[in-house]
Design a protein around this nucleic acid. Sequence first.
DNA 1: ATGGTTGATGGTCAA
Length: 262
Amino acid sequence: MRLVTWNINSVRLRFDLLREVASNLDADVICLQETKVIDDLFPLAACRDMGFPHVAFHGMKGYNGVAILSKRPITEIRTPSWCEKVDCRHLIAVIDGIEVHCLYVPAGGDIPDPEANPKFAHKLDFLREITAWYGANYTPCDRVIVAGDLNIAPLETDVWSHKQLLGVVSHTPIEVELLGRMQESIGFVDAMRHFIPPTERLFTWWSYRSADWTVNDRGRRLDHVWVTPALAGSLRSTLVARECRAWTQPSDHVPVLVELEG
DNA sequence: ATGGTTGATGGTCAA
């Protein structure tokens, strides 16, 4: 299975780029975040024309939204929600007996203080809640993939400057700690770092708020693919499609590919 | 410390 995750930042605006991603990466499964479209307007026919007959989507007006496109049948769809909000951040599709979780963790706003910033408090609560849920409902023996924009760069080499980003939302110690607890809940294996050593810089996102994203390579690794220990032995390769950031009218995130045997 | 850009939207809000 060749699984791709991409924060597409509007599936309607960037459908032509999605075709390129699907084709260039020879994807079997594509997890999308920030689709920004209600379900009635989701481009389902275009997905089928592109060679993905099986599609699950869970969207809302204007913000968030997740989708999973698959060449193989989807046998079950679920849409959990967190923090008593129905904000379309989590979609589960069962494909080949594997639970594929497409996840979009709240970004958390600008101020890294839960007292002063309700969005940051929501991000931390979201992580605590979903961590408890994984721990209570799954075991390392289950076949689960979590793929998506987790909006946290956990390692020092997941950001362009560890020191300069310690106080910036996405790399603060409290977020890194909570993401670590979530990963440990059922022993998720970081599929990208399974192949790329932690000493090597690895980014999947570069801000729009820069005249030239290539200057000093000021990126962060916000997008992740995790697999349960039951699937770790099936991991074959990973790839960050960095070239997509240089495309015309790009997303600020680039696609990440993880290949699994079978 | 601040600002910078983008997308959905039709006011700003979120990222």
